[in-house]
Amino acid sequence: MIRDTTLGAKLWAAAVWATVGFFVVNLLAMIATVVTSSFATRWLGTWLPAGWTTRWYSSAWSEFQLWDVLMVTFQVIGAVVFISGVLGVTAAYALARRDFPGKKLLVLLFLLPLMIPSMTFGIPLATVLYQTGLAGTFWGVVAANLVPTVPFVILVMIPFIEQIDPKIEAAARVFGANTFKLFVHVLLPLLMPGILAALLLVLVRTIAMFELTFLVAGPTSQTLVVALYYAVFAAGVRAVQSIDAMAVIYMVTTLVWLIIALRFVNPTQIVTRAKQQPAH
């Protein structure tokens, strides 16, 4: 890598880092604002609150029925992760191992829900779910969330499965493994790191998936992020600090899983599907 040492190059580098610093500082300050406010007794027109308290957490907990909301959230996420894992991994295996007419079309079909913003396909999807009576129910929310997550798992898993040599499966066959044994003793252990990474990413994305859940959820099938939206939307009804306390609870739920996920995946994988092979 060529590093320039001229004054112009140094100024340019300084300007670039200053921009990054400005962005990061504002981002962290924004998060700190939410956290500070959630512990504030009264915070108006000063740098820091007048005093500190934790009571907003208990009031948010009861006001927003957070226990119920959290239960629904985790049930939705659990169902989404499980179903997208089963559907996604099996489909990815077929797509990685077989060439058949129409495969390209199918891959395009799986790619589209990831490229098209959820708001665009969410409205017709919600309409269909309302007409079938699924909207507002738990399974309606799960179904809507699966639309982008199943393709996501497929597209993360295809390259992962492709890099496993099919000869390993052939070898297992030769040594007498039947289909079930092949799957349990050979494929599953080999695929586990990929499945784990894909499902953790699905989990993190589903907690934060607002649009689809918002469009199809009813009062008893809201997830935390939708409840937070309604709370902010109706700001003025509740104390700001109470909403902030709820926001902190939401942040903690997300960040715990993000930290777990980052043990297994590279942060860039949350945005790009497969890390590009660094060219030698």
Binding site: V20, V24, N26, L27, L28, A29, M30, I31, T33, V34, S37, L44, G45, W47, V204, A208, M209, F210, V225, L228, Y229, V232, A235, V240, I243, D244, A247, Y250, M251, T254, L255, L258, L262, N266, P267, T268, I270, V271
Partner: peptide, 29 residues
């Protein structure tokens, strides 16, 4: 750096909106 940058994506638009309301508000930092 990439971990810090991935924060707003994982936190999502609703939380960012909620945070900015206060942070960018007339009394905000």
């Amino acid at each position: 750096l990439t971990t810090i940058l991935v924060l707003p994506i994982t936190l999502g638009t609703v939380l960012v909106a909620e945070g900015l309301l206060n942070y960018l508000g007339p009394q905000g930092w």
